[in-house]
Amino acid sequence: MRAFRYHRPADVTEAVALLDAEPEAAYLGGGTNLVDLMKLGVQRPDLLVDVTGLPLDTVEALPHGGLRIGATVRNSDLAADPMVRRDHPLLSRALLAGASGQLRNMATTAGNLLQRTRCVYFQDTGKACNKREPGTGCAARHGQNRDLAILGWSELCVATHPSDLAVALVALDAVVEVHDPGGAREIPLVDLHRTPGEHPERETSLPHGALITGVRIPPLPFARHCTYLKVRDRASFAFAVGSVAAALDLAEDTVRDVRLAYGAVAHRPWRAYRAEEALRGRPFTAELAAQAADAELAAARPLPHNGFKVPLIRNLTVRALTALAGAAPR
């Protein structure tokens, strides 16, 4: 692997300045994805700026409800946090559905959001991949693509985003706090990840050197009334074949409000706005849930090996919402 320098910055400003000056540098969080990719030659940074020593490792309640999660809070700590478990159980459920105990002990919040696709072609330097090497082609488009996208893909890239946490966060309208040389700013999480379009090598809207310092979750009165369903090929320690994050607010039998997001279907965590729209203000039934899923999935364009994801996500949507409606506080 490429020889690299390693640095632990004193503060966020130093970290951002370092990356700004070094076009081939990368931030290092838990390293659970980046270090693997460095060994494989997929990523070849010449400088690692280890941000895990920065004071970004706390979970705080916000004054008017909601939560702020530091960028370097470990996945295990976040999942076990009493406030998270009580007020935002969707996060705990999504986190604990992913990876393994050992990986969650290392992986950070921001690192989880910024992890790379597990598309097998991306991870193999012997195969064509526009994301890894723009212009080389997408071997997955006509290759082994069972696990890949059904929504929002382009001819250049059919990869999916692998995170479970991101699916839960995007359902909860999370906002990402970012520092770059211009200062601090905020990006709605739903705008952080891109669809591949003409530039699959660009996975987020962040410029080189921007550092995620935290994630804020706005207050949501029905956040506790949620579920995260994840389908995978074995019982544990596997990426999703498809997942659904849902939170539901019923007034009598009518959908007052709803949050719905899908995982493992697109290049980014997929907030199901169309489905939400189809649900809001209507009397809840299983048929309505199915129609809502159909409304969202109308845009799906399955690849040769993953047509099953459409009925799978539809079924999961119905199950998630039906379970929440059945257990709705009255």
Binding site: R118, V120, Q123, Q144
Partner: peptide, 11 residues
């Protein structure tokens, strides 16, 4: 193409 333990699943 699935030549690691994350993509070649073993029980």
């Amino acid at each position: 193409v699935n030549h690691d333990l994350a993509t070649y699943h073993i029980s």
